[in-house]
Amino acid sequence: MRLTLTVLFTCLLLSNYIAKAQTDTTDLLKGVTNQSNEKQYVTAAFKSSRIINGHSMELIGKNVLDFRILHRFGYVNDGISNLFGLDEARMRMGFDYGITNNLTIGIGRSTLKKELDGFFKWRPIRQATGAGGSPVSVVWISGMTLNTLKWAVPDRKNYFSSRLGYYHEIIIGRKFSERFSLQLAPLLVHRNLIDTDINSNNTFALGIGSRLKVSKRMALVLDYHPVLAGEQFGTYDPLSIGIDIETGGHVFQLHFSNSEGMNEKEFVTNTTGEFWKGEIRFGFNLSRVFSLNRNR
């Protein structure tokens, strides 16, 4: 009795061992791979470094040169005589360059007001999953604009500083899922010279940007900048909706917007179209990136 029991017991153990050995061999990696949740940065919350007008929480990466061509046409409700606005266009041409993965600088020139602009964009906090990962990205952008039009009143004493404008922006954004990203961006614009007393030098707006991916290479985007303080007389909150289409090294952003300006100072303080009245412009952003890395 005892013998049979022992044999049975041993057999049981043995079979147990064999079974264990088998599960072990079907997964050799067990015990080797750490199933830990390592910190991993979240990428591609937006396809481009701009949502439409405003900056997105994305940076372009180290040693990447991004050549951007932006167009804004006339009002769609001008009708057929103006080919729904396509007969006139404003343009901004610019270069962005990634110094590090978290720091980008850029310059551009708009045909509107013959304005130059330059900025830096720094991401001190980057959204990441896993242990110690931040739930949001935080991006700081500061820029300057320089109007190079001839002086409106040449007879009076004009100062160079009158041509300048500044903007500062903090983006707090999160990629909630593969499809949905949202960011909030308080933004302050200061202009050294304003045209009338009733306006204020400082304008404060809240940027709201969002993306909804509809396919792997296409996304709907929304870019809204309600002005909270210092709204300019006769201007409206810039609102743009569009679609991002990505093809390899290009991103095409096609959109409808009530603003004409293509830098922060301009679209926050000088959006004269009333969106819901149909004073909407068609426009597109075209981005082409070049990788200047020579070695890995």
Binding site: Q40, A44, I60, K62, G98, E246, S291, N295
Partner: peptide, 21 residues
């Protein structure tokens, strides 16, 4: 076994597209 995110490309955008698309 290999984590796909761990592949490093010379071009940042290529890496992004590799992972995303």
């Amino acid at each position: 076994a290999v984590l796909m995110r761990g592949f490093e490309f010379r071009k940042a955008l290529m890496q992004e597209h590799f992972n995303e698309n």
